[in-house]
């Protein structure tokens, strides 16, 4: 287990944000991008973690609490604290919620594959939750709103077509350490902001243990690598360990496919997304 997040420890200076400015832009983003395509509502999976708690908070401000449906989808090995944290957010915001235990459908499937490892089961759970959210989006006439932050998108620390699937994502350009700052400022319960980040596939799981590095360190490196485009040589001169640099760069590169649409074999002169290029907000 890694140490809990300490809010008293200030974020790396270049990644510090003005939370009020960011809040205003993201609330405007949700309100604008949802409504102009004819929707009033959003649906999201609420895990009890900081990312989805933040998105729920921003969505409630943008659209009104009645227009935010959260779905709490525990598996039998999920930490019970996750559910109580999620319910605390639901109560605090006065948003709608549904609870669906995914254990029966997961277990029914893996009865065919009893030897499946944790990673495979975790991916299946993420996609099962996605499938529930998209079903609820149909019932509720709501857009699925995403909760993947920039750090996990860059590292590929997520399940493609699982938790990475959404119609719009307000926090995908915020690093994890920036999510903490914003969540704290908009009133996400401190206990949620400060707890160790976890995919919660089993009690006690920890992102930072699995990744092998602290988010604070990862975000610092990503800042220089992605935002400032430092070379590997320059990163070493800043004092980052070579193994750390190599590992992070490898993750970013190997997971590029997760951040893109499927490759299409080119045949015609106007292939979708390559030379048939239209904005998604076409006509809005």
């Amino acid at each position: 287990m890694s140490a809990p997040v300490s809010l008293s420890e200030p974020a790396f200076p270049p990644l510090r944000i003005n939370p009020e400015l960011v809040r205003r832009i993201l609330v405007g983003f949700i309100s604008n991008e949802v409504r102009k395509v004819g929707f009033e509502r959003v649906v999201l999976g609420l895990s009890g973690g900081v990312d989805s708690s933040l998105v729920a908070t921003l969505a409630a401000e943008a659209l009104g609490a009645d227009n935010v449906l959260t779905v709490i989808m525990p598996y039998k090995t999920s930490d019970p604290k996750s559910k109580s944290d999620a319910l605390q957010v639901v109560q605090q915001l006065g948003i709608q919620h549904l609870e669906i235990d995914i254990s029966p459908q997961i277990d029914a499937y893996f009865a065919h594959f009893p030897d499946a490892d944790q990673k495979r089961r975790g991916n299946k759970m993420a996609r099962e939750r996605m499938s529930i959210l998209y079903d609820q989006s149909w019932v509720w006439r709501a857009l699925v709103i995403g909760t993947s932050n920039k750090t996990e998108l860059l590292l590929g620390y997520g399940t493609i077509y699982g938790d990475m699937a959404s119609a719009i994502n307000p926090v995908g350009d915020l690093y994890k350490t920036q999510v903490w700052q914003l969540a704290d400022a908009v009133g996400v319960p401190t206990s949620i902001v400060q707890k160790a980040p976890s995919a919660d596939l089993w009690a006690g799981q920890s992102d930072e243990t699995e990744l092998g590095f602290q988010y604070r360190m990862i975000d610092q490196l990503l800042y220089y690598l992605v935002e400032r485009r430092y070379s590997v040589e320059e990163l070493k001169q800043l004092g980052f360990e070579e193994a750390f640099i190599d590992d992070i760069i490898r993750r970013v590169r190997e997971n590029q496919y997760k951040r893109r649409l499927p490759l299409i074999a080119k045949l015609t002169s106007r292939t979708i997304d390559r030379d048939f290029r239209y904005p998604r907000d076409w006509g809005h």
Partner: peptide
Amino acid sequence: PGRGVTTDERL
């Protein structure tokens, strides 16, 4: 388009 988020009040 707005970009460049820091601790400043403006982009």
